[in-house]
Design a protein around this nucleic acid. Structure first.
Lengths: 344, 344
DNA sequence: CTGAAAGCGCTTACAG
DNA sequence: CTGAAAGCGCTTACAG
């Protein structure tokens, strides 16, 4: 390791030119097979390390895809990210992952870094308040952008996600079918498209069934486990407590169920609870969580494929059709009417 | 955005040299203030994007730090990563995050990519089976490595982590103090230093109290929520069922508690359960989880500081001292002896 | 099938 | 305080 090994080191050792070495290392048919083998052997023997920065400077391709979401620790994104990773790996793209925590300036500095590194593409779950011009800045500097989970108003960047309003409406309809006439919604914010659409689905299903919505049923805000937990405190203080609660996400629902228990209420018995996303944990939770499968894997796979197609210059291989949500009924919504004879 | 703007574009527009522009943009005192302001204004006006690849090729500094752990979705790592991110952000280093899923060849390809991109440093939670030579390869190519959570035998790479054996021993002693004489340990593997050390602490505390360890008490393997859930099935089939269980991690414990409930046993009442790590969720879980605080924030902060110090050429600012664990007693370990009169 | 030469966009001594 | 020139390590036409 005394001296850094570069193409020219190999070339000199073998009495060849750097051009030949470069071609051989990338399996060009232009180089005779014997020569290629000699070169590869020498590269390994000498501990050669390919300098991507130099190559990238020359070719203006970096093999890097940037991925930025609110929170990589959120299992919802985790499942999407695994699918993206899988897809990008297959195409030997390096991916750079980051959180923006819904902080616009963090997201901007990420996009900036990607621009500076010459990333080939971007997959974004846009931070709250992302203006279309931010996406145009990237696109304008030949950095294609694909969106996941959320949309950005006024932008024509493709977005891959589930059908949030339909999904939430399906869920609320199912709760109504179980006999519930007072249903709260916990979590989510109107600042995101996801929040707006799920709330719209909730309100739509209520209206459709002729149930009059009451403002105190809507506890907006929570988007994580901890804030879901805290929301239970607000919930138990509602004068005429709803018999069912649909949450913005599974994470919120799981935290909310912890909060109900803490308050002495049994989820699934005293209060019906439902989540959204069907993350891995939902099926094993206590009680198992009723939720809506939101196609995370499909979202990740399609977004990555769409981006790769754009990089390859191919026409959009993937459609932007919304992924159709599926209901997962489990015990958390199995409200026990016998426990509340007053409501019968 | 018609033509790509580079240093020379700005230089020409202003009738200056690229050298001056380059210096001005990096706030060199060598450039007169008026000139600097003119240059900066022009850079912004023209939409100039700094090309880091070019700069990095020239300076052989990339401003990139690679971070690779088994699973970024694991909240244990999540908490470490936040601390690392915070520390690196302050020093304007870009960090590239990746999972290796304890797959050695994934880890190798990550290290390789970092080498190719000319990363300045690496923070690694080494995959199972990582040989010291893998770390030497990186170091030998001037890529400094700092370890978190685990150690690598035969390597002198600094490792930042909690004192696993002491922590687990403390926990088991506490369970013994509550009156338990039969304590199982669920999860973890002897293939990692963490697994070996926590098991050693467990065995040590038993021996110390004169309790004879029984092989069926040790359910090795699980390291995630789902496998913790599955382990409960094995646990309930133990002939003389232990009254307490200490788990390899909080994630395992949380899954295990779900599993116990599924099997009809009440965690904290029928079986005392404890975790390890004190992740955020532990305190709000049902029941709240007894565990050991493992200093994730401190691990992340120290590891990042140590790496940055090495990059800066400073002597190691952070010591490699193990972080002292702290007990967090909560209700999950509050076994109700009255529920099992046979054991009194 | 192989080589010589230019150039990607920066930064860094070195002059002036 | 500013400029001319070399060079980081690749790849890519272009010759031969």
């Amino acid at each position: 390791m005394a001296q850094k090994v570069k193409l020219s080191t190999i070339a000199e050792a073998l009495g060849l030119s750097t051009a030949t070495v470069s071609l051989a290392l990338r399996d060009s048919p232009l180089v005779a097979e014997v020569t290629r083998e000699r070169i590869k052997a020498e590269a390994i023997a000498s501990g050669y390390i390919y300098n991507r920065r130099a190559a990238s400077l020359r070719t203006s391709k970096s093999g890097i895809v940037g991925v930025c979401v609110h929170d990589i620790m959120n299992p919802f994104f985790g499942e999407i990210l695994i699918a993206i990773e899988h897809e990008l790996d297959r195409h030997r793209q390096t991916f750079i992952l980051s959180n923006h925590y819904d902080n616009l300036s963090k997201q901007r500095s990420f996009v900036d870094t990607m621009l500076q590194l010459g990333a080939d593409g971007l997959i974004l779950s846009p931070a709250i308040g992302t203006p279309a011009s931010d996406l145009e800045l990237a696109e304008g500097n030949s950095l294609p952008v694909v969106l996941i989970a959320r949309t950005v108003e006024g932008s024509d960047a493709g977005s891959f996600r589930g059908d949030d309003s339909i999904g939430m409406a399906m869920l609320v309809r199912a709760l109504i079918a179980e006999g519930h006439r007072s249903i709260a919604m916990v979590g989510g914010t109107s600042k995101t498209s996801t929040g707006r659409l799920r709330e719209a689905g909730y309100l739509h299903a209520l209206a459709e069934a002729g149930i009059e919505f009451r403002p105190e049923w809507r506890i907006a805000g929570p988007r994580g486990r901890h804030s879901g937990f805290d929301a239970a405190e607000t919930f138990v203080r509602i004068a005429e407590r709803p018999t069912a609660v649909c949450c913005f996400s599974d994470l919120v629902a799981l935290g909310f169920m912890y909060g109900l228990s803490r308050a002495g209420l049994r989820p699934g018995i005293d209060v019906a609870v439902a989540g959204y996303d069907d993350i891995d944990e939902a099926a094993i939770a206590t009680p198992p969580l009723t939720t809506v499968a939101n196609g995370q894997k499909e979202v990740g796979r399609r977004a990555a494929s769409a981006l790769l197609a754009r990089l390859g210059g191919t026409a959009f291989a993937e459609t932007e059709e919304l992924i159709v949500p599926e209901l997962r009924m489990r015990q958390s919504s199995g409200f026990d009417w016998n426990a509340r004879p007053d409501l019968k």
